[in-house]
Amino acid sequence: MAGKSGRRSENRFIRYLILFTWALFCLMPILWFLSIGLRPRIEIITPQPIYWPSFSLDAWKMIWQDWPMAKYLFNSVAAIFGSVLIDLVLAIPAAYALSRFTFRGRDDIAFYILSTRMMAPAIVAIPIFFLFRNLGLLDTIYALMLVYAAINLSIVTWIIRSYMLDIPKELEDAARTDGAGDLRILWEIIIPAVLPGIITAAVIAMIFAINEFLFTLLIASTPNAYTMSVALANFTGGSDGVIYNAIALVSFIAMVPVFIVVLAIQKHLSRGLTMGAVKG
């Protein structure tokens, strides 16, 4: 007996060791960002490796004092959440219609929606620029919301649709005979049942949006609409050269909103990512 339980705790130790190593490996870039961001600029550009860097808040002070970092952060968060909200409001009814109602050309429409994702973004860059100029929305976060929403709408619709396809039709039939109409069924039965899928889609859309650079650069021309991803570019040129420790810190800060969101909905997310794979 003793030998057996001894082996079991040994197994557990090895398991934790592997998991710890893997976690460390995954966290390495983030720790590296922090380490670079919190050391003096001079220590970054020395050719010799420095094992114990000295601590400095120079970069931290610089990005908040010399740059409207809070404004960038606000722009990022507002544009991302706004776009995800637009996506969900549009995609949930669309996904419902595409997964449940039978009408002519349904599958073609579904594929058309997905195909918008296959286009190279640069192709629509110029039309989008003129479109927003004519709308008077250039250099506003509203334009960013709309562009991010447009980019992600197809993938969000498809993810939610695939979750809806997995919901047994019986559930809706039951609700209908119980006296519920289409909107009631969508709101009270379908949405709660596909919530993990909706959350998964929203997180994926958020990650795409936070990484978006091309259209943001096109639309934002002043700090009024700069987001974190474009702000980063500010540190790579100009008379000061590439300011690595500032870049590292800004990148780190840019991660924080998504990190918080993922942490908050982690339970739903892991369920969501696996639920589509295994039916029932």
Partner: peptide, 18 residues
């Protein structure tokens, strides 16, 4: 269906999971 006064029991029960 919603306006007919019928109630149905399904093979898979169709209970609302949430």
């Amino acid at each position: 269906a919603r306006d007919r006064d019928v109630a149905m029991v399904f093979q898979g029960y169709a209970l609302y999971p949430n």
